[in-house]
Write a protein that binds this DNA or RNA. Structure first.
Length: 472
RNA sequence: GGCGCGGUAGCCAAGUGGUAAGGCAGAGGUCUGCAAAACCUUUAUUCGUGAGUUCGAUUCUCACCCGCGCCUCCA
C-alpha cells in the first residue's frame, strides 16, 4: 500500500519510497542531553516511532539514525552548574533518555549518533565548505556564508534576501559577515571541551552535527528527515545549506515536522509551571502507556494540547482495549466463525491501515479499531463470537499494537503494579471468595475483593457463578 | 509584519460539496447479592463570525475575530 506523508519541502502529500530501492533511510533530530526529556520532546519521538513502526509493519526495511547532542552551550552551562564534566553530564542524561524511550515503547534507532563521536568528520566537512567558498574563518571560528547558497530559505519559505549583504554585524562573541550567517565551528574558550582543527581548537556548531552525522551514516542523499516544527528554521534550513553546498545534490527528499505540544494551551515553560518531564508524570502515578496513547492519538501535524484530564482519558481508552483482549483470551468459545463479524474485522483492518497510510491519521485509525471493539464486545455478549473470530480480532489488536505499542506497555505496567502476586495465589483467594459467595457470606467475599483490588487485581464475576481476575 | 498550525458536543478529536466518526466524562437502563466489565438509550438541527458561489457548505471563495508556534541555535 502506498503510504503518503506530508513533505514540508514541497508542501504536498507524497508517497514514501526507499530511494535506494532497498532500505528506507531516515534521520531524526534527537535530544540535547543537558536535562531529562520533556513530553514535548517525546511527542515528536513518538510520532516518528509511529511512522517507523507503521513502515516496518507494511514491509519496509528501515535504517534509522537519531542524534544525541552531547556538547553545546547549554551542555557546558548545565554541567558546570551540576559540578560535572560535560562528558559526565551527557552520560547521565543520555542514559536517562534511553530509559524514557524504552518506557514509551520507542524503538531504538539503527544508529544512535553522539555528536562527540563524529568531530573529525565535521571538521573535514567544514574544510570542504571553506575550500569551496561557502564558509569563512574569523577569529578561530568558522561561519557559513549564506549569501553563497541561493536556495537558502526554501524549506522554511523565508525570504532572507532583505538582509544587507556585506554589512558587518557585531554580535556578543563572534564576528560574522552577515547577521544571517551561522556558526559551523566555535573557537575554544577556557574551561570548555575542545577538539583540534585547522582553525585552532574549538567545538562544532549544532547544525553541522546533524548534516555530517546523517550523511556519514545514511549517505549524501537519503529519504526522510524528521524533527519538531520549531527546527524548520533555522536548524533544518542550515542543515540543507551545509550539505548541498558541498554535494550539489538533494540532501533529503522528504521532511517531516511534528507540531508543537502545548500544556493547558500554552507553550511549556518552567516559569509557567506547566513543564512536564516523563518522570514527573510517572512519579504522579500516570502510566507511560497512557502518555504514549495520548501523544500518538492526535495526528502529528496538529498541535496537541496536553492536560492531565486528557491523560486520564487516554488511560481509560487503553483500558477498554486491554479488557477486550482479556475477554478474547478467556477461551471457551465455539469453533468456527461468525461470518458477519469476520467481515467487520476485515473492514476494520482495512480502515485502520488506510488511515495510517494517509499521512498517519492516527485519530481515524483509532476510530476503526474502536468500532471493531464495540462489535466484538456485542458479539461476545451475544455468544456469537467464535474461536476463529477471536483469533482474527487478536491479530488486528496485534497489528494495532505493532504501531501504537500501548498494549505491550500496559501489560508490562500491570505486571509491575501487581508484581507481588502470582496467579496461583490469586486463584486461591478467588476460590475462597467464590466459596464465600456460595454461602452468601458477602461481607467475606467483598473483603477478599477489596484486598485483591488494593493489590492491583480486579475481580469480575461471571454470569452463572464463578469469577475471573485481571491485573489493573 | 512574514511563514505555519488550528477554532467541530463538558473534554480530546475524525471528516466529507448532500446533510456530523471514534474515545473520555455525565444521565438513565440491562446484567449483578453489590460491584466490575460489557451492552442499550441519551448528550452538536449543528461544525469561530459575516458575506458570497451552489439546487445544496461544516466542507469552496473572500473578509473578519480568536488561540498557538517559528522568524538565528527551543521538540
Amino acid at each position: 500500500m502506498e503510504i503518503l506523508l506530508y513533505n514540508t519541502l514541497t508542501r504536498r502529500l507524497e508517497p514514501l519510497v526507499a530511494g535506494d530501492g532497498r532500505r528506507f533511510r531516515m534521520y531524526t533530530c534527537g535530544l540535547t542531553v543537558y536535562d531529562y526529556g520533556h513530553i514535548g520532546n517525546y511527542r515528536t519521538f513518538v510520532a516518528v516511532d509511529v511512522l517507523q513502526r507503521f513502515l516496518a509493519s507494511q514491509g519496509f526495511a528501515l535504517e534509522t539514525v537519531m542524534n544525541i547532542t552531547d556538547v553545546d552551550d547549554k551542555m557546558i552551562e548545565r554541567a558546570r552548574t551540576a559540578g560535572h564534566s560535560v562528558a559526565e553530564h551527557a552520560a547521565i542524561y543520555t542514559q536517562a533518555f534511553l530509559e524514557d524511550l524504552g518506557r514509551l515503547g520507542i524503538q531504538p534507532p539503527t544508529h544512535l549518533a553522539k555528536a562527540t563521536d563524529y568531530v573529525p568528520q565535521m571538521v573535514a566537512w567544514i574544510e570542504r565548505l571553506v575550500d569551496s567558498g561557502h564558509a569563512y574563518a574569523s577569529d578561530g571560528s568558522v561561519y557559513f556564508r549564506v549569501a553563497s547558497f541561493p536556495a537558502y530559505g526554501r524549506l522554511s519559505g523565508k525570504d532572507l534576501g532583505g538582509l544587507q549583504a556585506g554589512a558587518r554585524v557585531e554580535s556578543d562573541q563572534y564576528e560574522k559577515e552577515e547577521a544571517r550567517d551561522f556558526v559551523l565551528w566555535k573557537a575554544h574558550k577556557p574551561g570548555e571541551p575542545s577538539w583540534p582543527s585547522p582553525w585552532g581548537p574549538g567545538r562544532p556548531g549544532w547544525h553541522i552535527e546533524c548534516s555530517v552525522m546523517s550523511m556519514t551514516l545514511l549517505g549524501e542523499s537519503f529519504d526522510l528527515h524528521a524533527g519538531g516544527t520549531d527546527l524548520i528554521f533555522p536548524h533544518h534550513e542550515n542543515e540543507i545549506a551545509q550539505a548541498e553546498a558541498v554535494t550539489g545534490r538533494p540532501f533529503v527528499r522528504g521532511w517531516m515536522h511534528v507540531e508543537f505540544l502545548l500544556v493547558n494551551g500554552e507553550k511549556m515553560s518552567k516559569s509557567l509551571g506547566n513543564f512536564f518531564t516523563l518522570r514527573d508524570l510517572l512519579d504522579q502515578g500516570y502510566r507511560a502507556s497512557a502518555v504514549r496513547y495520548l501523544l500518538a492519538s492526535v495526528p502529528y501535524r496538529r498541535q496537541l494540547n496536553f492536560t492531565l484530564e486528557g491523560l486520564q482519558q487516554a488511560a481509560a481508552a487503553v483500558e477498554r482495549l486491554m479488557s477486550l483482549r482479556d475477554r478474547l483470551r478467556q477461551g471457551g468459545l465455539a469453533a468456527g466463525e461468525d461470518a458477519e463479524l469476520a467481515a467487520k474485522i476485515t473492514a476494520a483492518r482495512a480502515g485502520y491501515v488506510a488511515a495510517l497510510a494517509d499521512n498517519l491519521n492516527t485519530a481515524e485509525a483509532l476510530a476503526a479499531i474502536f468500532e471493531l471493539v464495540r462489535e466484538a464486545n456485542i458479539a461476545l455478549d451475544a455468544g456469537r463470537l467464535r474461536a476463529a473470530n477471536a483469533t482474527a480480532c487478536e491479530e488486528l489488536l496485534h497489528l494495532f499494537d505493532q504501531v501504537f505499542a500501548v498494549l505491550t506497555l500496559a501489560e508490562r505496567e500491570k505486571m509491575e503494579a501487581s508484581a507481588g502476586l502470582d496467579p496461583a495465589t490469586i486463584e486461591a483467594r478467588l476460590r475462597e471468595r467464590d466459596e464465600a459467595r456460595r454461602r452468601r457470606d458477602f461481607r467475606r467475599a467483598d473483603a477478599i475483593r477489596a484486598e485483591l483490588d488494593a493489590a492491583g487485581i480486579a475481580i469480575e464475576d461471571v454470569k452463572g457463578g464463578g469469577s475471573r481476575w485481571r491485573r489493573k
